[in-house]
Each structure stands twice: as structure tokens, then as C-alpha cells.
Write a protein that binds this DNA or RNA. Structure first.
Ligand SMILES: [Zn+2]
Ligand SMILES: [Zn+2]
Ligand SMILES: [Zn+2]
Ligand SMILES: [Zn+2]
Lengths: 147, 147
DNA sequence: GGCGCGACGATACTCGGTCTCTGTTTAACC
DNA sequence: GGTTAAACAGAGACCGAGTATCGTCGCGCC
């Protein structure tokens, strides 16, 4: 992600007021590389221009999430973080080392899984969550010098 | 899940002391139907025999999890719950209505996904989390009488 | 320019989870 | 069976993420 305007436009299109706080949020989110915690934004906001209130951080993230611009990920250690999204159904790989993250298309898993799960368990699946964790190319290279 | 002994035996096998609190925990966990929150156990423990301390609840669950006897699930609403497990790599479907849950085998997703993700993103995947949410057969029947 | 609703932010609060510390239990060894 | 070191339980303090409240302010609209 890297374009604040995409975010603000989406907000506008969805009928949300354009406010200073939200513009800052859009900028911050767009500037993140990989996963980030709400707390990170709070700190960053406080550091630069006039800070954004804690409540607003969460409210904005909630809106962004409802618009599919951001997604919550549940890290292996139980913490919660967010990642910026580029629309369409997808999932994320998150680097356990540096936190960078990337989207992965649906991989065609959804329909298969849904069907299989349904026929094996009788459950009518209506949503799912898939998260991959591992090492990003950079960290991978860093930990395995050349061997 | 329904056998407390399986749990206590596993603890024993792993070299953990057999204590009163852990036996109670084994019984409680075995008695749960579907997903349950730590808080639930706390309340239930308090209600029946001599309660188990809050810290102990979490410590035990942590051990159970490390032994693959229990797994943490991140519900769609952000809450955390646990489900009892029957070993081997698998995932869960959780009923969004009544909370019942069931294991689903790997579905063959793991190797495919791993490979696809790796070749598309360059990430070296070493763990993943897949959760399905929907309606269990009972709730399904209940909400769609016969139509 | 004025109005009303929506959003902001400070603060207080809740709640899930952890830490710390002390007294107790356990298992192993004699 | 008695002794002892290490593991454990539990009470309570503590912490941090997230939420609720509420007075103020800004946006969009007329
Ligand atoms: Zn979570
Ligand atoms: Zn990385
Ligand atoms: Zn399981
Ligand atoms: Zn159900």
C-alpha cells in the first residue's frame, strides 16, 4: 500500500465526512509497511503533526476494515495487528521476523474448502480466515547467508 | 471431546505433575461442547468443586495447547476462545450461532498452499491458521425449518 | 453565515491476560 | 515413611488493548 488518496476517496465514496483525523489516518496507514498495531499508529500520529486520539484510531480502523481497506490479523503470539488491503478476496502472509506482509490471492482454496468442509461436517460455511506466517524474502536471505 | 483421562494421560506422558487443579481442568475441558472461553472455565470451576485460580486456568490452557490438546481460535468478532482437539494437523469449523465446533482434516490445503504462497510471494511459510465459521447442522435446520 | 448532525478527543473504565510472590504439593530419593 | 528440591496453585497487583461517555468542534448543507 502507498496511496493515501485511495483511502480518502474510498471514505468519501462511502459517504463518510472528510476530516483532518481521517486524512492523517489515511496517510499513516498508507505509509505502513506490512502489519502494524493500532498502538503503532497512535505513537506515530503523536510524533508527527497534531496527534489523533486513541478512540479515533480504533474508530477509523473499524471503518477501513468495513470497507475492506484494512484487515485484522491474529498473529501467532496472540497479538492483533492490521494490514492494508488492495480489495478482492484474499489472504495474507506475514513475516514473523520483520512484520512485512503481503496479500495472496484466494489460491482457489475458498470454493474447494467450503464445499469439502460442508460435505464432511454438515456445517454451512459463510466465512473463513486464513493466515500464513513465515519469512519474507529479505529475512530469509538474511538468516541463510549463502549456505 | 469427552474423555478427561486422555488429557491427564497426555500431561503425564509429557512429564507434568498430576495436580488437583489440572485434573479439574481436564474434566472441564473434556466436558465442553465446542468452543469455550477461558472465562467460561473459570466460572464453571468456581461453581462446582473448589474453584481453580484464574492464572492456573490460563497456565493449563497454555500447556494443553502446547500439547495439541486444545487450540485457540480467533472468532470473527475478535474474541478468543478454545476448542478441544484430537491431535494431527487439522482446522476447525465453528458455529457462529451456538458455538459448537468440529475439526476438519487438513483438506490437503497445506502443501498446495505452502508451495503456491512461496512461489508467488517468495515467503517461506512455516505455519498457518485456517478457521471456518458458519452454521452447524442443528442451527442450520433450526433457522430453515423446512422450506 | 448559521444549523444540525457527525465526528473528535480526553478521560474513565472494562476486561482479558500476565506477573509476582508466598505457601503448598508433588515426586524422587533415601 | 520421612526429607528435600523443584514444580505448582492461587491471591492479588498489574498491564495494555479496546470501549464508553460526553462535552466540544467541524463538516456539509441550506
Ligand atoms: Zn485474536
Ligand atoms: Zn521479513
Ligand atoms: Zn483442533
Ligand atoms: Zn450451531
Amino acid at each position: 500500500m502507498s496511496d493515501p488518496d485511495t483511502l480518502t476517496e474510498a471514505l468519501d465514496r462511502a459517504g463518510y465526512h472528510s476530516t483532518a483525523a481521517r486524512r492523517v489516518m489515511a496517510e499513516l496507514v498508507a505509509a505502513q509497511e506490512g502489519r502494524f498495531k493500532a498502538e503503532d499508529l497512535l505513537v506515530q500520529a503523536r510524533r508527527t503533526r497534531r496527534g489523533v486520539g486513541r478512540a479515533t484510531i480504533f474508530r477509523s480502523l473499524e471503518i477501513f476494515e468495513s470497507l475492506g481497506l484494512v484487515e485484522q490479523v491474529h498473529l501467532p503470539n496472540g497479538e492483533h495487528a492490521f494490514v492494508a488491503c488492495e480489495r478482492a478476496h484474499h489472504h495474507h502472509v506475514v513475516c514473523t521476523q520483520c512484520g512485512r506482509s503481503q496479500e495472496v490471492g484466494d489460491l482457489g482454496i475458498t470454493p474447494i474448502a467450503r464445499e469439502l468442509v460442508e460435505q464432511r461436517t454438515g456445517y454451512l460455511v459463510d466465512s473463513h480466515r486464513i493466515e500464513f506466517f513465515g519469512l519474507c524474502p529479505e529475512c530469509r536471505a538474511a538468516t541463510t547467508p549463502q549456505a
